[in-house]
């Protein structure tokens, strides 16, 4: 590997690590921002003996300096120990592990839906143009503007209550049952991402279609599917993958809304419940995981771009 590439990869990884560290300082610092004694905020609404309050103070590192407390919390997080939930009285990491079985399939399902449908619509509107393109761009604009809770309300009214095709709540058990139960939530979450991908994709595809190399390929007699696959989609892949990376954050946060709307016991509804119970160790743990996932996905996308598009590697595009 050339030296410049190694330096570039190293720089990206360092930047990602710095972002995660800064974000974790922000997440931990929130606890210290609490007006008054932070322990009272942590224990608000819970009847605890002075000994228990003292135990909470020690467990959350509030008896230590800000720096010491942060280092302890972060050191624990590196060992996958995110502290104890004040509400459930169990490890935050084991709470997360229980809930991941709902949230990860939900996020993947909805990502697949958004990418497949969004890219298909983008390709169709770029190739057909005219009225099809205009209708598709209106559909994409409306989809982009649809928040997950509005999509959830519409889907619930039509497909769960009106037609009765899908269940309104619950995550189901077993593969096919879960797949069936998660269809409406995944769709609700995918709508906005679908709209963004359709817009970005249509712009990227139609720009490639107008390029000289496509005209040359047409002149060489290449047409139809092969033209799109090798000369249009391949070249437009880089911007699309970048957008998909950014959209993971939308999906991750979307689980909070969608899992609440459809009564699913996932990481998102755990976050919402913990915020309203002011169960700060859980909120901090989930926030940290969310930021790490988001930064990791976007760093991976950045690192994968030279593999996807050789022009990035040689510096021809950027």
């Amino acid at each position: 590997m050339p030296r410049a590439l190694l330096t570039w990869i190293g720089g990206r990884l360092l930047g990602a690590a710095a972002t995660v560290v800064a974000a974790s300082v922000l997440i931990y610092g929130c606890l210290r921002l609490v007006p008054g004694d932070p322990v009272l905020a942590l224990t608000a609404g819970r009847r605890l003996s002075p000994e228990q309050i003292e135990a909470v103070r020690q467990a959350s590192g509030l008896d230590q300096s800000l720096v010491r407390g942060y280092l302890d919390w972060m050191g624990g997080a590196l060992r996958l120990d995110l502290g104890l939930s004040l509400h459930y009285r169990t490890e935050v990491s084991s709470l997360l592990a229980d809930r991941v079985a709902v949230s990860v399939p939900l996020i993947l399902y909805s990502a697949v839906l958004a990418v497949l449908l969004g890219c298909t619509l983008a390709l169709v509107s770029a190739v057909r143009g005219g009225a099809v393109d205009r209708a598709a761009s209106v559909l994409a604009a409306v989809a982009t503007a649809t928040p997950p809770f509005v999509a959830a309300v519409v889907l619930l009214s039509v497909f769960a209550v009106g037609l009765g095709w899908f269940p309104a709540t619950g995550a189901g058990s077993g593969f096919w049952d879960r797949w069936w139960h998660l269809t409406l939530p995944a769709t609700a979450m995918a709508v906005a991402a679908f709209g963004v991908l359709a817009r970005v994709g249509a712009a990227a595809f139609s720009e490639e279609l107008g390029r000289d190399h496509v005209t040359v390929a047409r002149g060489r007699g290449i047409g139809g599917f092969a033209l799109l696959r090798d000369h249009v989609v391949r070249n437009a892949l880089a911007p699309l993958v970048t957008v998909i990376g950014v959209l993971t954050a939308t999906l991750f946060v979307g689980t909070a809304v969608v899992e609440t709307a459809f009564g699913l016991e996932g990481v998102g509804s755990l976050l919402v419940g913990s915020v309203s119970r002011r169960d700060l160790p859980v909120v901090q743990g989930v926030s940290l995981v969310a930021v790490v996932v988001f930064v990791a996905v976007n760093t991976l996308v950045d690192l994968a771009l030279p593999l996807i598009d050789p022009r990035v590697r040689t510096g021809a595009v950027r």
Binding site: T19, V20, A23, L26, I27, C30, A249, T250, F252, V253, A256, L271, V272, S274, V275, R278, D279, L280, V283, Q284, S287, A290, V291, F294, V295
Partner: peptide, 13 residues
């Protein structure tokens, strides 16, 4: 790197 809604929820907590 912080989605807006996540930061808002952190502050509400």
């Amino acid at each position: 790197a912080f989605p807006g809604l996540l930061l808002a929820m952190l502050v509400v907590a």
